[in-house]
Simulated assay, not measured.
Amino acid sequence: MELRTLKVFVEVVRRGGFSHAGKAVFLTQSAVSKAVRQLEDELGVILLDRIGHRSTLTAAGETVYRRALRILSEQEDLLGELSELRGLKKGRLRLGLPPIGNDAVFAPIFAVYRNRYPGIEIELVEQGSKRLEEMVRSGEVDLGASLLPVPQEFEWQELRNEPMHVLLPAQHPLASVGDIELAALRDMPFILFEGGFALNPIILDACRTAGFTPAIAARSSQIAFIVELVALGLGIGFLPRLIAEQRVNDRVRHVAVTAPAMAWHMAWIWRRGAFLPHAARAWLDLAAE
């Protein structure tokens, strides 16, 4: 069994098909299909259920996919350790960042790191917290930023712990109060982030604790658009305090939410017990400063 064949199979699963996988590994669609069939023949099991242009994992395929991720991540660890032993002056840092908070939280660290370690090549990937956990698990990134709590398979270092604020139109009667109990917002339409954003469960779980299910007026992946919708009176939004302070405009106010309190508890995560490159350790040291 070759590592290259395993990588091709993993990419087929990740990309959802043979043609997209081929582009990722620089092979033709027929070569990708041949590699997967070769792996099936070698293992004596069918890995993919091929229906038209779609392919889904069989039970055996799920097992092989899970093991293949571990094998390929171990390969990454091996290559990383060997690079460290060779004493390379240049290195690579693969970072996974969430879409929320990049300018307020991560950009300042990035600027200082680039100035301090100009020889380190930095690869940035922007995904939601759950997807970043998958990428850390599979070794696609060295470090990912995710909301706590995280599974026990990860080690973590706290980055920020910010209370959540509600965004209200400036003319709203509650816009001038010091803080708001979540139950007081039950009759207002909510503007949430798109599915997959880790902030949504925080908000919805707090609503359930407060005894209501909010009406959702809209969803967006763009903070600026959510702020604008709030300014126009289409609903209320939520942001961590630090980000709200930098993103609201004159037509929007942000107020702390209490009872129950909500928090944006962000941490850097990496695989427990895995080799962590020097470039990643240097990033964690800087973030801790």
Rank of each mutant, 00 (worst) to 15 (best):
P149H: 08
Q29L: 00
R67D: 14
P173T: 07
R114V: 13
V248Q: 04
V25C: 01
G178P: 03
F193C: 01
P201N: 13
H172C: 06
N249S: 12
N161K: 15
I243Q: 00
F26D: 15
E153G: 09
G17Q: 09
P108L: 14
R272F: 07
P260G: 13
G195P: 05
F106N: 03
L79I: 12
L174T: 10
R281V: 01
I100G: 04
K130C: 03
E162S: 15
G237L: 05
I243H: 01
A280T: 06
T258S: 13
E84S: 08
R66Y: 11
A261V: 05
F154N: 04
S33Y: 04
R86Y: 00
A279H: 04
P151N: 12
G128W: 12
P173A: 03
E155Q: 13
E2Q: 11
A279E: 10
A287F: 06
G235K: 04
E81D: 08
L147D: 06
A218V: 01
M262E: 02
G144W: 01
A274I: 08
A170R: 05
H172T: 06
R92P: 00
L6P: 15
L199M: 14
M1N: 08
R70T: 13
A206Q: 08
R92S: 00
L97D: 05
V32L: 07
R67V: 03
R114P: 11
F9R: 10
A60V: 06
K90S: 13
N249A: 09
V8Q: 11
I226Y: 08
Q29Y: 03
A287H: 02
W156T: 12
E134L: 09
F238M: 05
D285N: 14
R86T: 03
P108V: 11
M188D: 04
F275D: 02
I202G: 03
D179N: 08
V248N: 06
P173F: 01
A287I: 06
I243Y: 00
L48Q: 13
D103Q: 15
L174K: 09
L242R: 13
E62R: 11
S55H: 03
L124D: 07
I51D: 15
Q152L: 02
F193P: 00
